[in-house]
Design a protein around this nucleic acid. Structure first.
Lengths: 356, 356
DNA sequence: TTGTAGGCGTTATCAG
DNA sequence: CTGATAACGCCTACAA
């Protein structure tokens, strides 16, 4: 690969002049300028990002840390981030933490040696990246947290409005006539889980309802978690008539459990998920869900990092994205016959299936 | 951040000695060695990957290029790649091409300036990266193609055994008694699409069956493609009794179309997808699919790159991974009443629904 | 076994 | 406006 020296030779100018032409760091007379550009064009020369980074103490790399790209919510974030990064000449180094803050720390330390311009991170469980973030900032890199925040996070962030999303979904169920509402939250040490639970509770309170503690279950953010907790919920007397699942994976597990118990969704029990993943459109019944744009989350995060990079002294920003309640087939008014033993619902199951 | 010079001062040795200790490039007497290690430990020093890369003409970066991380098949590949990379001290720079070989080229050129040790690429449509690959190899980077291959690809590769996977699925349908088989392929300029079609045709031929051209439809690898082509297939007389969908997205679209036409899967028509995505477990009926391990694809690709990196002269390797036919609820023997007008199937639809 | 010094490809400073 | 030249942090002959 050609280097600047070679370009300088070809153009018959000095190395410094080439640099000036390439970076617009000084006005260069047209004939020289043209000769340099020609040489660049002919050789297909591209400056070494390594050397440039070394010299400028900063690369056009963005470190992107996510729990697990296999979790169907995260690819959207990554894609949104990559698009904005690419549009601005930046590249993403992608790392998975498996929600392990130990592994997160390893990545954080290692990535800093590339002198990235920014760090976009979806914090792992129990992450406390205050110290690391400080270190990154000191080296001139912008740090943005996405989707969930570490305890006492004081830096820039982009999240969805989880509380309002959950509030709207819950209110919708209440308006349909549901009174025995259950919620399956994600791990409650995560801020997004906490906020969704808060939204749920606020809607319940506002409607003057009481929710017994057993109706609020904490689960892992996956199908297995949703399945297990739904099994528990379905055995409660009286049985809840609606479940707010705090993400779509949990909702899928819930649907599975409902089906296994020979109950029908939505006739016996309504389910609303959270995230609005594509998979909610392919289940039977199609899952209602609080949609949030993972793509937008990532895109805004990188934009925020670039802004911060340009102006390091402006006040910290917390961008909060709107959610959208997508009602599909998994919600209905509560069953009329309120016998909690499930006898009545067997019949409704049959009717519902025929109707489908 | 500390640098080697600082470590040298702290340890009271020369810069070169520090380097020797860190890289094991020369035997250093224990007391000195220990002093260096202590200084490293105390300062939390980590060598600059930029400087190291510049000096050694190679970084521990791997360039990973995929069509679109939003396509649910690709996160697995990326994750498999990242895990093996991480285990060996490498990092992944992730780029999306949107299947645009123009964009692919931009990435290819840009990434080379980071002096990556390897390039793992799922080629875009009409990609011809022979020239770029040569350039990468010349600079000492290993190049591995994954999932699909550019025309006349002569380098290392990792793919699934698409032909055998499709053959097995088709044979399974034939063994169930199906005679009017249809196939919806992906874009036929992709080698994986071609291979799956070949497998389908071989199974058909081997069973002594004839397939009218209209029974083989080419679609885009997404739900919309599967939906549109299935609509066409369902209007054919006689109607096919089974569809091999060449990926799961197509299968999802097919399922949607079948449902919309008031037909029942599997009683009226069987469907088998390809890839074995998680989503196949959450549809009704659950989709049968030819499972391939996207994770393994990525993991093997990086391992192959590392091997190649260690031994640049060994013969080219084409790793081909086994697939596994996962039969779930979407397949059944063909309907007994072979009236093609669909009158008979309305009744079966009702029965099937009740049964469900 | 340890230290010294040149150079990887850039950028940036400073004379001319 | 242009051209030398000194870093950036590290590796690696080569010298001591």
């Amino acid at each position: 690969m050609a280097n600047m020296k070679r370009i300088a030779e070809l153009a018959g100018v000095s190395l410094g002049t080439v640099s000036h032409v390439l970076n617009g760091t000084a006005r260069v007379r047209e004939p020289l300028r043209e000769r340099v550009l020609n040489a660049v064009h002919e050789t297909g020369y591209q400056p070494s990002q390594l050397a440039r980074g070394l010299r400028r103490d900063k690369t056009n790399i963005l470190a992107m840390i996510v729990p697990d790209i296999l979790n169907p919510f995260f690819p959207g974030v990554v894609r949104g981030a990559e698009d904005v990064a690419f549009a601005n000449g930046f590249r993403l180094v992608l790392c998975n933490t498996d929600n392990d803050h130990k592994k997160e720390l390893v990545h954080l330390n290692a990535l800093q040696t590339y002198l990235p311009s920014g760090l976009i991170v979806i914090p792992s469980d129990f992450s406390d990246l205050t110290a690391q973030a400080e270190s990154y900032r000191k080296s001139g890199a912008a740090v943005v947290c996405v989707d969930r925040l570490p305890r006492n996070w004081a830096g820039d962030s982009v999240t969805s409005d989880n509380a309002v999303g959950a509030f709207n979904a819950t209110s919708y169920l209440i308006d349909l006539g549901h009174r025995r509402l259950a919620v399956i939250t994600g791990p409650l040490h995560l801020t997004n889980s906490q906020d969704r639970l808060k939204g749920f509770k606020r809607a319940v309170r506002q409607a003057g309802l009481e929710i017994a503690p057993a109706y609020a279950q904490e689960a892992t953010f996956d199908r297995a978690g949703g399945y297990a907790k739904t099994k528990i919920l379905l055995r409660l007397l009286p049985r809840p008539t609606a479940i707010l699942a705090c993400n779509d994976m949990i909702a899928l597990g819930a649907l599975m459990a409902v089906r296994e118990e020979k109950l029908n969704c939505p006739d016996d029990i309504s389910i609303i998920g959270f995230d609005g993943l594509d998979v909610t459109e392919t289940t039977t019944p199609q899952l209602s869900s609080v949609y949030q744009s993972s793509y937008q989350l990532g895109a805004e995060a990188v934009q925020l990092a670039l802004d911060r990079f340009a102006d390091t002294s402006s006040p910290v920003r917390h961008i909060v994205l709107k959610t959208e309640l997508k009602i599909r087939e998994s919600v209905a008014p509560p069953p009329k016959l309120e016998s909690a033993n499930g006898t009545g619902s067997a019949k409704r199951l049959r009717l519902a299936a025929v109707r489908a």
